[in-house]
């Protein structure tokens, strides 16, 4: 099966390393994909706050574009790695299904610009694809550098499993844990998996956002995690790049490796760190590399 890859704005900028590692893992697992041609902004959070209908049109345009691009394929599976994009595409589909009047308006508008919204495409998160299409066993077979001795705290953030997605539990998701167990790691049982990291407020109201990130990082360290894996570009940026600000504010030490789940999976599949965008992280994941080579962590 071939997938349509919808990067969204952030995977082309702050989340560039997410894109690099995701596509490298796709290649390594033999997953075929095509990037969505002439995609536009998904219409996420901020847009919904100003004009809802336009936000739905933006999302619907992407879905319609995908359906057009894959018109000869049996199924249209859109892979949306960014949580906000993933959620908003799902939300749009659900909203239009429940509100036939709006569906008619939006269909007509898209028709004007030569697009046909069929509402047939399936919106998929990469974790969903790895677990349900490829399977843990298949992935386990391809692991060349098992993550032995590494304690992974998988972190989904808010919009990956809430409120529309169905591939995992909304309160205590476990798919990422399955993935890393298959890659030979130990997984940390913690309650922070879907707790908001505050990213959408870090840029605007930092005094509210930083404590949220602090709670997550502090808890990960307390549960003796070696690495926090994220599935959202805002989360990764927020949890990694603000560590020094957090430490200064709370007079603490939250230093812990925070990387994309695709980066860690890529390393386990034996891919070059550079191909996985590891060099784009703020700090080299020192602990991770040390433990993978059988050594002791530097910062605890």
């Amino acid at each position: 099966m071939k997938y349509i890859y919808y990067p969204g704005c952030s995977l082309k900028s702050t989340g560039k390393l997410y894109e690099e590692s995701l596509l490298a893992v796709f290649d390594a697992l033999g997953i075929e994909y095509e990037e969505l041609k002439d995609w536009n902004c998904c219409g996420a959070t901020a847009y919904m706050a100003v004009d809802e209908k336009k936000a739905f049109v933006l999302a619907a345009r992407n879905i319609a574009l995908a359906e057009q691009q894959f018109k000869d394929e049996e199924e249209v599976n859109i892979v949306a790695p960014c949580s906000a994009c993933y959620m908003i595409l799902l939300k749009t589909q659900k909203f239009l299904e429940d509100n036939p009047e709006d569906m008619a308006v939006i269909k007509a508008a898209l028709k004007e610009s030569g697009l046909d919204y069929k509402a047939k495409a399936k919106i998929r998160h990469p974790i969903d694809v790895f677990i349900n299409d490829i399977g843990e066993q298949e992935i386990a077979k391809r692991i060349t550098k098992p993550l032995k001795g590494i304690r992974v705290a998988s972190y989904y953030g808010c919009q990956t499993v809430r409120p529309y997605s169905t591939f995992d539990d909304q309160r205590n998701p476990v798919t990422m844990d399955k993935l890393f167990k298959a890659a030979g790691a130990e997984v940390v049982d913690w309650t922070m998996k879907t707790r908001c990291c505050g990213a959408s407020l870090t840029g605007t109201i930092q005094e509210v956002a930083l404590p949220l990130s602090y709670i997550i990082l502090h808890e990960a360290k307390k549960r003796r995690a070696d690495v926090v894996t994220t599935a959202c570009s805002l989360c990764q940026f927020n949890l990694e790049c603000y560590q020094t600000n957090i430490d200064k504010k709370f007079k603490t030490d939250t230093k812990i490796d925070v990387i994309y789940f695709t980066q860690l999976l890529g390393l386990a599949l034996g891919l070059e760190p550079k191909k996985l965008g590891i060099n784009r992280l703020f700090a080299k994941p020192e602990n991770l590399f040390r433990i993978m080579e059988g050594g002791k962590p530097v910062y605890v």
């Binding site: 913690w190 309650t191 922070m192 709670i215 808890e219 307390k222």
Partner: peptide, 8 residues
């Protein structure tokens, strides 16, 4: 809303 074992 929740019962947790993490301490703030």
């Amino acid at each position: 809303s929740e019962v947790t074992d993490w301490a703030l």
